[in-house]
Amino acid sequence: MTPAAFAAFLARRLMKAAGVVLGVVIVAFFVVRLAPGDPASVIAGQSGAADAQFMEQLRRQFGLDQPLPVQLWLYVKGVATLDFGVSHRVQRTVASLLVERLPATILLTGTAFAFALAAGVALGAIAARRVGTVADSVVTVLALTFYATPIFWVGLIFILVFAVWLGWLPALGMFTVGADLSGLAAVADVARHLLLPALTLGLFYMALYARLTRASMLEVASQDFVRTARAKGMREGPILRRHVLRNAILPVVGFAGVQAGQLVGGSILVETVFSWPGVGRLAFEALLARDYNLLLGVFIVTSAMAVAINLVTDIVVALVDPRIEVEG
């Protein structure tokens, strides 16, 4: 593909992406308001006392006294200028809250993703290479186990074994509070806290990738060009790497792209079980509190990220398999 064609492709896709995100903004704006109750009624409910003046004050403060189309217009106008508004409940800008919480989530899901992809493809390849052997069975059973076990349960077991019984790893939060570490010590501290949640989240996806890689490789391995390569006298290793894996990896990359799109949304379950201060929990709390602006902010950032990663996936697939052309 020529650079010019690629630029045109990119421009078309970006236009579409902007359309998708605008659609998400508008749909989400109405969807979050479908839930009964509004932020004022939640606050009143949890404060144990309210009067008419109080409710009116809150609704005016939250901008809920405006007609719905006006609220939508103000919101879309804000988002167009990258102003996601204010979370009135906590009186902070949505952008600042997201910036505060996104790194934790990306660290967690990114680590889990990288681990899942690397370990999953490796295990799948091993299983496919030794199909029918004990190694294959072990990988298959492992993959099935982690695929079928609820994530929060795996998390609890890890906490029980590694944090409580063995006392090797912390189970709580993202770093040691009040330790005031710096430099390498701080990095090591975060890494220790990261290990269990990243493993918990990663093992589930690792199982998926392992199964996908194995199945896909076995399918490719039975095709004619592999037999040809073998007939030409190529050794098994290169055949596996260059002929089988390269062709078999396509569905894995496609699937990984879909999953990567969810990275920002994070995993509410894992973040909850391990008290990880990420965006998933922020979104969940925002939902319970009917914190519309904050919830919308999370939706938009998540969907924008998904759209962007989809685009990247398409490009990666084209790189892996030159037969596939990127199309607008």
């Binding site: 609890l156 709580l172 939060g173 009040g178 079980v273 008290s275 201060p277």
Partner: peptide
């Protein structure tokens, strides 16, 4: 000297934190 309030959303983990 200091008082720290941890935010721990999962009740199992709150139990672990207290016990440990």
């Amino acid at each position: 000297d200091e008082l720290i309030y941890r935010v721990i959303p999962d009740s199992n983990l709150r139990g672990v934190a207290l016990q440990t």
